[in-house]
C-alpha cells in the first residue's frame, strides 16, 4: 500500500503568543513522491514541518492532517515517528552525553517494541553493521557514531547527522528542512546523492529549500511555494528554476497580501 499524507486547510498558531502562522495549508504527499517546498524567509515552512511532527510550540486552530486516513494530529510525536514520519530539523538541538549510535539504537528498538512488545530489540552486531553501511553510503565518518548528539557539531555535520538518522530510521514520509544549508560544496553533493538514493518507491519526501542546487540532485515531482502561511503556487521541477531566476516578487504581485485567518 502506498502511504499518503494529506494536509487539509491546516491553520496553526504559536502557542505562546497566539500569532497565527499557517493559514490554510493544503498538500498531499505520497510515498515515492518528491515535493519541494520553497518560499521566502518567515513564510511558515519550518512551522509546517514542526506542526506535522507535533511540536508543542504550536497549536492547531483549524484543518486536519491524515496519514493513510488516520488523524495524525491526534498522535503523540513519538507515535508519528513510529508511524513513518521523519523530520530532518533546520536547527537540530544538542543532547549532551548521548551518543548518536546509542540514540539511534534506542530509536530503532522503540520501533521494534512498538510493533512487538516481546521484541528484545535489534542485536548489537546487526545494528553496528547497519550503521556502518549507512555511514558509508552517506560518506559519514565512522567516528560520528560515538559523538554526542549534535554537541559541538558544525552546521554541516548536524545536517549530515540528520540525514544519517533518516537513513537509519527509513521513514515513509520524510520532511527535510533546509538540509542543504550549511553544507560545503562537496558535502552538498555527497548528502544530496545520499538523499537521492533514499528517495524512491519506499519514501516520500518534502524537501524544504531555498536553492535549486539541491534539486539538481533530487529532481522533485512537485514544487510548491509558501507565502504567508499558505501554498500559493505549485508546479513541476521547472517552477524551482523559474524561482531561481526571478525570485518571489512576481508571486507577491500575483497573490498580494493574504487574507487574515
Amino acid at each position: 500500500m502506498v502511504t499518503t499524507l494529506e494536509i487539509r486547510n491546516l491553520h496553526a498558531q504559536v502557542a505562546a503568543n497566539g500569532e497565527s502562522i499557517l493559514r490554510g495549508v493544503n498538500l498531499t504527499i505520497k510515498q515515492g513522491e518528491v515535493h519541494a517546498l520553497m518560499g521566502p524567509n518567515g513564510s511558515g515552512k519550518s512551522t509546517l514541518a514542526n506542526v506535522l511532527m507535533g511540536n508543542p510550540q504550536y497549536e492547531i486552530t483549524a484543518g486536519e492532517v491524515l496519514l493513510d486516513g488516520e488523524d495524525l494530529l491526534e498522535m503523540d510525536t513519538d507515535e508519528r515517528s513510529r508511524a513513518g514520519i521523519f523530520l530532518a530539523f533546520q536547527y537540530p538541538v544538542s543532547i549532551p552525553g548521548v551518543t548518536l549510535a546509542n540514540f539511534l539504537r534506542h530509536a530503532i528498538n522503540a520501533r521494534l517494541k512498538a510493533e512487538d512488545p516481546e521484541s528484545k530489540g535489534m542485536p548489537i552486531p546487526k545494528f553496528v553493521r547497519m550503521m556502518r553501511e549507512k555511514m558509508n553510503s552517506l560518506g559519514v565518518d565512522h567516528s560520528f557514531a560515538g559523538r554526542y548528539l549534535n554537541e559541538g557539531f558544525s552546521g554541516g555535520e548536524k545536517k549530515r547527522a540528520e540525514v544519517l538518522q533518516m537513513a537509519v530510521l527509513e521513514p515513509k514520509i520524510a520532511i527535510m528542512d533546509e538540509t542543504d544549508s550549511g553544507l560545503d560544496i562537496d558535502a552538498l553533493r555527497i548528502v544530496a546523492e545520499g538523499i537521492q538514493k533514499l528517495t524512491g518507491p519506499e519514501m516520500g519526501a518534502l524537501v524544504i529549500t531555498h536553492y535549486q542546487r539541491m534539486l539538481d540532485y533530487i529532481t522533485p515531482d512537485f514544487v510548491h511555494v509558501m507565502m504567508h502561511g499558505q501554498i500559493v503556487e505549485s508546479g513541476g521541477a521547472e517552477l524551482a528554476l523559474q524561482l531561481e531566476e526571478k525570485g518571489y516578487d512576481w508571486l507577491r504581485e500575483k497573490y498580494g497580501q493574504p487574507e487574515q485567518a
Binding site: 511532527m53 513519538d78 530539523f89 538541538v93 543532547i95 548521548v98 530509536a107 522503540a110 554526542y148 548528539l149
Partner: peptide, 19 residues
C-alpha cells in the same frame, strides 16, 4: 527532538538524564 525519532516521553527523559 528525541520523541521525533520515536522515543516515548519517558524514554526521552531517561536518555537526557543518562546523557
Amino acid at each position: 527532538y528525541l520523541m521525533s525519532r520515536g522515543l516515548s516521553e519517558d524514554e526521552a527523559n531517561a536518555m537526557i538524564v543518562n546523557g
